[in-house]
Design a protein around this nucleic acid. Structure first.
Lengths: 121, 121
DNA sequence: TATGGTACGAACAAATTTGTAAGTAATGGC
DNA sequence: GCCATTACTTACAAATTTGTTCGTACCATA
């Protein structure tokens, strides 16, 4: 998000796309890791290290970036405890919890679509 | 999709992510244009030029690429008529139509989330 | 004094996605 | 013959996203 060209077609088209509530929504949860992070937070608070543990493939940098974006979008709440070593807890907001049932349906669709495509090929 | 490094972390992580039905689903409809295209096809067949007209910002190249991907994923059916100049019609498949109600919910969520975030800032 | 754990930050590099600008085949009408 | 139309294709360039590697502050504990 930082250091973006302000008038490239690329950026102008992004604006255009975000006009639509649907594509706007997808842009908030898109990218490689966000949905997985939200999923790991479903039902339980987690520390940074806990998330890292549940998502072995993600790098710390990516985890940081995505958590920060999710927080800015009001999907994740971050709580810092003044301890040493530091402790930070992440949890879903109300807004994010409303996504859960939608994700369930999308997931079902994904399973169905995957087997269909595998069948065709 | 063509010309991908086969063993970069980038690609391995993609595999990892696609294990999950949910993130798999999102990967099928992700990207900048796919959802908008599916939306424009909801309820009516469209020609290539028709889609281009409804999405003034998309380039022909992108439209071609996305339609091809959607076709390969079984979300769009392509019909070619042997005429000159050529006529090609696109329409949603059953599988894609099942996304419509999910999209409706996501869209509602998007609207709500957008106003919430705007309110906070 | 040296060490270790936590949650990051910064500089840089790799890989992918998206956009630009041109060109193609086929053929009916002029 | 020449041009216009449609649905693409191709080579190239710009922009973003993702990954790699190192480094930091804090202090309790050894």
């Amino acid at each position: 998000m930082a250091g973006r060209k302000k008038n490239s077609t690329y950026t102008r088209n992004e604006q255009y796309i975000i006009d639509c509530d649907l594509t706007y929504a997808v842009s908030r949860i898109g990218g490689r890791w966000k949905i997985l992070i939200l999923d790991k937070l479903d039902g339980k608070k987690q520390r940074f290290s806990g998330l890292k543990h549940e998502l072995p493939q993600i790098t710390e940098r990516m985890l940081t970036l995505q958590l920060k974006a999710l927080e800015q979008d009001g999907l994740v709440k971050r709580t810092v405890y003044a301890e040493v070593p530091p402790r930070v807890e992440y949890e879903l907001t109300e807004m994010a919890m409303e996504l859960v049932p939608i994700f369930k349906q999308l997931s079902r669709w994904g399973g169905k679509q995957r087997s269909l495509v595998n069948f065709i090929r």
